[in-house]
């Protein structure tokens, strides 16, 4: 008795195309036919790029102060296409931060965080912070001057958190100062702990979307009679594929034209004249310079807390003043402040 391979598999994994279609056929609101509404898929796609290129880089990377810089140099200069993969990883990290921030702004300004989606906003906030931390730990792994001193400064910032700060710092560094154990800590955080956490949170994020549905959004001039939804598969998947390709082209061009280079090797005895974190920390860096240690850290913590709590604060405002546009104005003010602080930090040396 001959069986086709498909039947053989079907007998053992009883899932048919119908079920698969059912599972993936998230009804997608029509506004997602417009390309610029698809920002949520972008960080997810970049996350996959980071996982793939990150695994490849880890094949050669050796996390210890004696070997780290040399192994990055090996990847950059000797391994075939190593420079390209490293460039992809670096640029995808940068773009991922940008994509997460843009996605969050879209959610904010369209009020998509409101009931019943407050929980997903919290998950999204966690993902934002994790993205930043992954960027920070990854940058430290190169073990060049700026990454070494960035890590040192970063660890000492946690030190200024009252009461627990000193323990947090020593936990992060594996000692009182940057030492033999620090790099392997950063590596395991960057390459295992944080990405797995992020993957789990992304799954939760998507599940919540799937359960709640994507927020519907109607334009005033829209034809009410036309169907309000279209299918995820295959229509929206094709859109996402196109966005993925655009990202890939952009990434390879950036990785080739502005490749990831290597600064001087870390020297624990001499701090460079100008030290700057990656651009996405400019805001925090400037903020730290504006206020003294503990005050800066506490105020930053307060801001992050307010961001987490925003759906509930917003609900309270809307309950008392239903027609209030406060959220828009606060958002605009926040965005402008972030841009202003980033530009300020970028334009000065110290």
């Amino acid at each position: 008795m001959s069986l086709s391979p498909l039947t053989w598999i079907r007998e053992r994994v009883p899932v048919g195309p119908e079920q698969l279609r059912e599972l993936t056929n998230e009804p997608v609101p029509n506004h997602l036919k417009k390309w610029w509404w698809c920002l949520g898929g972008t960080p997810a796609y970049l996350f996959v790029v980071q996982i793939v290129t990150g695994i490849l880089l880890a094949f050669y990377y050796k996390p210890s102060p004696q070997t780290a810089y040399e192994s990055v140099r090996y990847i950059t200069e000797e391994a075939s296409f190593g420079w390209f993969l490293r460039g992809l990883h670096k640029w995808a990290a940068t773009m991922m931060v940008a994509a997460v921030v843009l996605h969050q702004m879209r959610i904010f300004f369209t009020g998509a965080y409101r009931k019943p989606r407050e929980l997903n906003w919290l998950v999204g906030m966690c993902l934002l912070l994790l993205t930043l931390i992954v960027g920070f730990t990854g940058y430290s792994l190169v073990y060049e001057q700026l990454s070494y001193w960035g890590a040192t400064v970063g660890a000492n910032i946690t030190d200024s958190v009252p009461v627990v700060g000193v323990y947090l710092k020593e936990l992060l560094l594996g000692g009182e100062v940057y030492n033999e154990n620090t790099l392997s800590r950063f590596f395991i955080l960057h390459a295992a702990v944080l990405p797995v956490t992020m993957a789990a949170l992304i799954a939760l994020h998507v599940t919540l979307i799937r359960l709640q549905g994507v927020t519907e959004f109607h334009f005033r001039d829209e034809d009410r009679k036309k169907p309000a939804f279209f299918n995820f598969f295959p229509d929206h998947l094709l859109t996402e594929l196109s966005i993925g390709l655009v990202l890939m082209v952009l990434l390879s061009v950036l990785a080739t034209v502005l490749p990831a280079e290597m600064g001087p090797k870390a020297d624990p005895l001499s701090t460079p004249e100008v030290i700057k974190p990656e651009w996405f920390f400019y805001v925090a860096f400037r903020w730290l310079k504006l206020f003294s240690g503990t005050l800066a850290v506490l105020s930053m913590g307060l801001i992050v807390f307010l961001m987490y709590a925003w759906p509930f604060i917003d609900a309270r405002i809307r309950r008392s003043r239903p027609e209030s546009e406060a959220s828009v104005w606060i958002g605009v003010a926040g965005a402008l402040a972030i841009i202003a602080l980033t530009v300020w930090e970028a334009s000065v040396a110290h």
């Binding site: 075939s80 296409f81 229509d235 196109s242 082209v249 390879s252």
Partner: peptide, 26 residues
């Protein structure tokens, strides 16, 4: 959908070209 598929084919070609550029650099 046809148009979208066409767009994807075109973008794939662009990606391929950028990869060939990478090969040339290597």
């Amino acid at each position: 959908l046809e148009f979208k598929r066409g767009v994807i084919a075109f973008l794939s070609a662009a990606f391929l070209v950028s990869l060939l550029f990478v090969q040339w650099r290597e």
